[in-house]
Design a protein around this nucleic acid. Structure first.
Lengths: 115, 115
DNA sequence: CTGTTACTAAAGCACTCACTTGATCAAGCG
DNA sequence: CGCTTGATCAAGTGAGTGCTTTAGTAACAG
């Protein structure tokens, strides 16, 4: 069980997704690029605050920032979303396999040995 | 855009998943139930520390705790995992639909406008 | 009853987080 | 050149995390 590499990545990913403002930013960027100012507009928050959220998202790999004139357009990096998806599906798969085995076992030993 | 209800749930969910110990606990519970003591054993951490992680997981809905003699066996609640999965897939779907539209647009105007 | 096991409650501590304001910077406009 | 716009840097604050240790509780064993 090697840790620390995927672990840090998943830490950053799920931490990034744990804030409603950041989730909203991700959702909006899934519809197309946007500048920091555009992203900041809907919120009752300073642009600096939004800028800090963007840095958290960038460190997690969920978004990347380019440069165009005096703006820094942000775009979604869906590969990072896949990593989170993969982790969750792994647990779900293990769980449902176990459920299948339990069902099989129950239909095998259908007499009533429980305690 | 109604917020605050799903938002709080997703906050708790992704916050719960943002810690490596808690992700490990979820992964281990996907293979079957376990008591707090059993869960705590592999970690260089007090059982109280693990107990607090379990409370975070329980508040997020990811696990539930029963009572059996003097133990509190924990079990995974996969429905909560589905909620996180659903949110991520929503963003991914929006993004890929947008990519499809871009491709369509590019094959429409397929003259040779590349930078 | 006493003692042990499995666990939760509570308090404290270092650290991080989500903001804020104020300063700075870089690019374009007059 | 100065002025505005878009954005980051830096410092500070209040709230929350991730642990710890110390107590306390519930269930069983002697």
């Amino acid at each position: 069980m090697q840790d620390t590499i995927d672990d840090r990545r998943l830490d950053a990913l799920f931490t990034a997704l744990s804030d409603p403002t950041r989730r909203d930013i991700v959702a909006r960027l899934s519809a197309g690029e946007a500048t920091v100012k555009e992203l900041a507009e809907p919120y009752a928050m300073s642009m600096q605050g939004v800028s800090q959220h963007i840095r958290v998202l960038e460190r997690s790999g969920l978004i990347s920032q380019g440069r165009l004139r005096q703006t820094r357009p942000c775009r979604l990096e869906p590969a990072a979303l896949e990593a989170a998806l993969t982790w969750i599906e792994q647990s779900r798969r293990t769980w449902s396999q176990r459920m299948d085995r339990l069902e099989t076992h129950l239909s095998d030993t259908q007499t009533g040995e429980d305690q």
